[in-house]
Computed example of a mutant assay.
Amino acid sequence: MTTLRTENLAYGTGEGRHLVDAVDLSAADGETVGLVGPNGSGKTTLLRCVYGALRPTHGRVLLDGDDLAALPVKARARRIATVPQDGHAGFELTVGQVVAMGRAPHKRFWEADSAADAALVADALDRVGIAALAPRTFASLSGGERQRALVARALVQQPSLVVLDEPTNHLDIRYQLEILALVRELGTTNLLALHDLNLAAYYCDRLYVLQGGRVVADGAPADVLTAELLGDVYGVAAEVSTHPKTGAPTVVYLPQDRAQPRASA
């Protein structure tokens, strides 16, 4: 059982500006929770506080009741896997070696990879559709291929919580759908930031809407994604309906110059 909770979480800069401000968030065991909001709303900063890249200036992050700030780095890495927004392209390692790095939290510093480790890597590469790229250097991959390699690295880490920052970045439509479906099939508790509201509505159990570093709405996608909220938070006109096949809310954006029918001549 894996539960995530943030309590009054805040992260501020030296100038007194709060990028994340008083955020209370939860994710139940096996739940996929999405963060949505416009650019600069605090999604990435919040995720970095959750997985430990940033130390909150106030509040705390609890995983199964344990304060993550009190855990050693390696112990935290055994429980949380991270898929960042943009994979660094400078690695001279091969794709297979980058994915195998996911086993590091489970091994001693000098411990070599075992046959079981190699099998986990091969399976993860196959599951994200890049098995043929294993001998290539990570730096030679396209943005979408790098993103899938980082998802594979998270798979071999065998975490209980997966934190993903825009996991569909650079991916074509097919792989966007496949990666998010794979995340849901992991059986882990998942926290992810997404820009695409239709993907968030379909693949997330609950959503938190951020604006200016604060949570302005949370709940099931159908309760959160309303035309009124999209107008307030994103400043756009939109229509929200229930898709007849998926049952999920579907957002259609209305360009400002075409929001109203044009009068006939």
Rank of each mutant, 00 (worst) to 15 (best):
L35V: 07
A104C: 11
G52R: 00
G247W: 04
Y202G: 02
G102E: 07
S160Q: 15
V236Q: 01
E178Q: 12
T82Y: 15
D29Y: 07
D232R: 15
T226N: 10
G87F: 00
L71Q: 11
R174K: 13
R79T: 12
L229G: 10
L9T: 04
L19Y: 02
P255Y: 02
R184M: 03
R136L: 11
D64G: 12
L93Q: 12
T82N: 01
A119M: 06
H88G: 14
E228R: 15
D29W: 10
A10L: 09
L191D: 05
V209G: 12
A81F: 08
A112S: 11
D165W: 07
Y11D: 10
L54E: 01
A119W: 03
A22W: 07
E185M: 10
L199A: 08
Q97S: 13
T246K: 05
A193R: 00
A100N: 04
A116S: 02
R78A: 10
G40F: 07
A104K: 00
L207W: 06
L199T: 09
L191V: 05
R17V: 14
V156N: 04
G34Y: 01
N198F: 00
L155D: 09
T32F: 15
V224N: 04
V236Y: 00
A237D: 15
E7P: 02
G90K: 06
V99I: 12
E111S: 01
G247F: 03
Y175N: 14
A134I: 08
A139P: 02
L47S: 04
L93F: 15
R148W: 00
L150Q: 05
R146G: 03
D24V: 06
D123E: 14
Y203P: 02
L194V: 05
A154S: 00
E92F: 13
Q158T: 14
L125S: 02
A112T: 10
D117R: 01
